[in-house]
């Protein structure tokens, strides 16, 4: 392990972690919004996968990261609509819906990818560049870690306080939370629970898909089946372990991201421990985290319970 922890490598791991964290963080914030509105969306993995494929196709076609982000978010909204129709309108069990949606997304993205590449693989594209922030990125240590990142990483980090303020201080945020805590109260005030839940799902799913898009733009230049590799699930765990609070969720995300990057670096350096064990780390950590961090005080009271108007 000793050679793993030289300052230069540590720096590179941490810098990569912040990048890796962006993917999970975007999804986790999306899921947090959705869950606070009462929808226990288990379809994060599938939604992210849809975002990945949409971004990949858009990049291949236009080479424009902005178009890719737009396409991914549209795919996310579509995913949110499907999940919302089943959970909010049809009152199908939230877990069953999410599981079903993941299986659908896994099959459908694979099919669409194979159809898209049937006539030969597209040329692919270059991963996007970093946006170092002048001066700040030159601070030794923290500079390269925090301020030599992609634009979307800054945006994701900025979203943490924004989501926090949205939930705490704004009227729509308050109403979304009420939908997750006590929907009868909201209905008694003449406010539609379904509209708030659809809203949270659509925005949340768009963010999740944007996470998938970032993965395609910054880390991969080709789509693979199930490329999201469980990051959607890690996002769900981060929300639970973060007790449904944005900042704590971010901390859980960073734990996963560091473990994730550790695996990548260990593979590259030929550490004595087989790399597969490093790859297991985030998943093992997620179970451990849930078993150890057992505060669930922030869990919305009506999370995952379909709301039936009397």
């Amino acid at each position: 392990m000793a050679e793993l922890l030289t300052p230069a490598i540590l720096l590179s791991i941490l810098s990569a972690s912040v990048g890796a964290a962006t993917i999970i963080l975007l999804a986790a914030l999306g899921e947090l919004l959705t869950e606070r509105a009462g929808i226990w969306n288990m379809g994060v993995e599938g939604t992210m996968l849809c975002g990945c494929l949409a971004a990949y196709v858009a990049m291949c076609e236009t080479s424009s990261p902005i178009t890719a982000a737009g396409a991914a978010m549209l795919a996310g909204v579509a995913a949110g609509l499907v999940i919302g129709f089943l959970t909010v309108s049809l009152k199908v069990d939230h877990f069953v819906t999410g599981l079903g949606f993941n299986l659908l997304a896994s099959g459908l993205t694979l099919f669409l990818f194979r159809s898209y590449t049937a006539g030969g693989k597209p040329a692919g594209y270059a991963t996007i560049d970093r946006w170092p922030i002048p001066f700040l990125s030159e601070i030794p240590g923290i500079g390269p870690i925090l301020f030599n990142q992609h634009l979307l990483t800054y945006a994701a980090l900025l979203l943490v306080p924004l989501v926090s303020v949205f939930l705490a201080r704004t009227r729509p945020g308050l109403e979304c939370r009420a939908a997750g805590e006590n929907p009868e109260f909201l209905e008694a005030k003449g406010i539609s629970v379904a509209k708030r839940q659809y809203g949270a799902l659509l925005v949340g799913s768009a963010l999740t898909a944007l996470g998938g898009c970032f993965m395609m733009l910054a880390f991969a230049n080709e789509f693979r089946p199930d490329i999201s590799g469980g990051r959607g699930w890690l996002a769900i765990v981060a929300v639970i372990a973060g007790n449904w609070r944005p900042f704590r969720t971010m901390i859980a995300v960073i734990v996963f991201a560091v473990l994730d990057s550790l695996a990548v670096h260990a593979q590259g350096m030929g550490v004595a421990i087989p790399y597969q064990f490093f790859l297991m780390l985030p998943y093992a950590a997620s179970i451990l985290l849930l078993a150890v961090v057992r505060t669930r005080s922030g869990q919305p009271a009506r999370l995952g319970i379909p709301f039936l108007r009397r």
Partner: peptide
């Protein structure tokens, strides 16, 4: 205040 506010911020 829930249900008795207008506008974006409470």
């Amino acid at each position: 205040v829930l249900g008795h506010e207008r506008g974006l911020f409470v």
